[in-house]
Design a protein around this nucleic acid. Structure first.
Lengths: 209, 209
DNA sequence: GTCTATAACGAGATAGAC
DNA sequence: GTCTATCTCGTTATAGAC
């Protein structure tokens, strides 16, 4: 695919592909990747389907680039949380808040959504899904481990297992809560999950000795 | 029983309508409700699309009846577990095993799957999804409460919160594990969830104060 | 109950003008 | 970069013969 115009004379074209991805992202998060069409995007942006194909040759192409952008943005957000907060519960609360924000827009996590459609998606998109889950599990495990080492939170066993449990649980809690249009249900569930799973370490009680 | 070719009601003389639902169920659990067509079912059964419309006038009709059957079969399975096991962890382990069995067939929980497509589904199907979640949450809460009262398991706060957390967590863990074609990942996560959330009550140790 | 045939529509995708 | 026009295919759904 050709890159953006290299001259500085036009600034607006830089936004078209991104604008398309913005709409596609919202539709994919609300209706699923198989739940929207080029016509939906075109209508919303006031352009034609043919123009969409200029920016994204195929829908599979659009999907792969959509997920790559999403993963990259998510990664930036995770790094931001880790940089802004010391090891401890606060980091995980902000992680949960990332999900709450998505849910407030009646959306699902993009990759959680596409995971449901997994078997119908082209391999490049499947790879992105697994990559997103790996990224999140590893970040969560690292945050949990650092909090344990800092004596802020307590849990037993490998941090990887904690990361996997938190990721899966939040994705599922989102899925259910959205069916009831009830963000508070998600928030309450997420809070309890963290409370039970990695309670604050109280000096003088059982934890790491 | 979910994940099995036949529901608990019939054994040998499965009629055409049931055969159609069997195929539709498997396709919905693997590809989603929007991920299969009448043509897919017709081809697999060696009949025509027109015949399908004789049994199910519209796809929305098929979907609603499919979910009603699924929920009913699931309800029977839950009652069976509660009747066969005394209050305690074993009941919940068998509940998890229900999910593992589904996942072993590369399927998702039907209602978890359709929850992702929620916004694209007709209202009757949405109702069934919420009903399925309610049914499961309430059963899990009841099982947790009975186990606590029997002194078998320990947890604090309302049992409803525990039911919601388990349901959402299992649905999400399924979703993620299926993307990696790794049932053991689900099983390990589910086991840890139950261990942490409602540990066995050991006399003389911290549990309910 | 199942078939053939077809309607009516929407999907992804392409060619070529401007 | 965006347009008009079109192609091809798949989708749900119906009519009517057997």
């Amino acid at each position: 695919m050709p890159g953006r115009p290299h001259s500085a004379t036009h600034i607006s074209p830089a936004g078209t592909a991104d604008a398309i991805l913005d709409v596609a992202e919202r539709l994919a998060q609300t209706r699923g990747f198989n739940g929207f069409s080029y016509a939906d995007i075109a209508t919303e942006l006031g352009i034609t389907k043919a123009s969409l194909h200029y920016h994204f040759r195929t829908k599979a192409d659009l999907g792969a680039r959509l997920m790559a952008r999403y993963s990259a943005a998510f990664s930036v957000a995770l790094n931001g949380i880790a940089a802004a907060q010391p090891p401890g519960r606060k980091r995980l609360d902000q992680y949960v808040e990332l999900y709450s924000g998505v849910l407030r827009g009646d959306r699902m996590c993009l990759c959680g959504m596409l995971a449901a459609e997994y078997t119908t998606l082209p391999e490049p998109m499947r790879q992105e899904i697994r990559g997103f889950f790996d990224l999140n599990e590893e970040w969560l495990a690292r945050m949990a481990e650092e909090a344990r080492e800092a004596g802020e939170l307590a849990f037993e066993g490998p941090a990887q297992a904690v990361g996997r449990l938190i990721l899966g649980s939040l994705e599922g809690a989102m899925l259910v809560a959205r069916s009831f249009s009830d963000v508070s249900r998600f928030e309450a569930t997420a809070a309890r999950l963290l409370d039970e799973l990695i309670p604050a370490r109280v000096p003088g009680q059982a934890g790491t000795p």
